[in-house]
């Protein structure tokens, strides 16, 4: 365990210079502007490891348990994708011939799906950049503060994010996604037009609230939103990588035995 803590400390030490470099890099539109860093007193303290419980498996506000994943108003192509999905949760949950891109390929889960796993995440808040480090799959996000998105960003698994503080809330605006991830655990797709706004607020010392607003007119005619809460965790961040070798071995050894024909 000490080695893991040490390794994580080294990671943070490695990130620190990169965030300084990022603040100086003129890669974004608006990067010529001097970032207006809030004073230390104005920056909400989001420190700690935040643990979700898994709970809600769908971002459909009317169906958080995914009992009717096709019920949301959505474009025909999106509905076809939902109906064809063989996900881990909801009405179509299955162990047989799964199509979940995380289970099948160890693809990155994507921003909003990461909130649905019972793993931890943490923030590294620097004056001009916030990093979010996720325990599950060990992905991380870079959130430049008080900057604009680049014009027409290239598609990316985690999109292009910019952030700002509004009082006690960190607001993250993200565009520039590819269309390869699911937004939740029941197979709801999204398009490359997805625009996310996350509002993260520490409602008390031990509780983080995350409100996510989805606007994806190519997939869903109306914007929708939802909330998740996370609890402060005393456990250190651990290794929870998605290794395709291990994933396939697990599916062969365990999951596939449960979908064989019943014994007579």
């Amino acid at each position: 365990m000490r080695n893991r803590v040490l390794s994580f400390g080294l990671l943070l030490a490695a990130l620190a210079p990169s965030c300084l470099l990022h603040a100086q890099a003129p890669a974004r539109s608006g990067a010529g502007k001097t970032p207006t860093s809030p004073s230390a007193a104005a920056v909400p303290d989001l420190s700690g490891n935040w643990l979700g419980k898994g709970g809600s498996v769908s971002w459909d506000p009317m169906d958080p348990s995914g009992k009717k994943p096709e019920q949301m108003a959505m474009a025909p192509w999106a509905k076809q994708k939902v109906e064809a999905a063989r996900p881990p949760f909801g009405a179509r949950a299955t162990f047989d011939n799964v199509t979940d891109p995380v289970q099948k390929y160890c693809d990155p889960p994507g921003v909003t799906r990461l909130y649905g796993y019972p793993y931890q995440f943490m923030f590294v808040q620097t004056p001009n950049v916030v990093y979010i480090l996720y325990e599950y799959t060990r992905v991380w996000r870079l959130i430049p503060l008080n900057q604009e998105h680049p014009k027409d960003p290239d598609p990316a698994w985690m999109g292009d994010s910019v952030g700002r503080y509004e009082g006690d809330t960190l607001v993250i605006d993200t565009i520039g996604f590819n269309d390869k991830t699911w937004i939740d655990q029941v197979g709801h797709p999204h398009s490359d037009a997805l625009h996310l706004v996350e509002r993260l607020r520490r409602v008390d010392h031990d509780t983080l609230e995350v409100e996510v607003s989805f606007d994806d007119p190519k997939a869903y005619p109306k914007p929708f939103s939802g909330k998740r809460t996370f609890k402060l965790s005393p456990a250190p961040m651990a290794e929870a990588l998605c290794s395709l070798t291990e994933m396939q071995a697990f599916q062969d050894e365990v999951m596939k035995t449960t979908v064989q024909p019943p014994k007579k």
Binding site: K53, F95, Q185, M255, T258
Partner: peptide, 12 residues
């Protein structure tokens, strides 16, 4: 007691 495994529990 809600249960959660990354792959769900459909086989059980």
């Amino acid at each position: 007691s809600p249960v959660f495994a990354h792959h769900g529990t459909a086989g059980y």
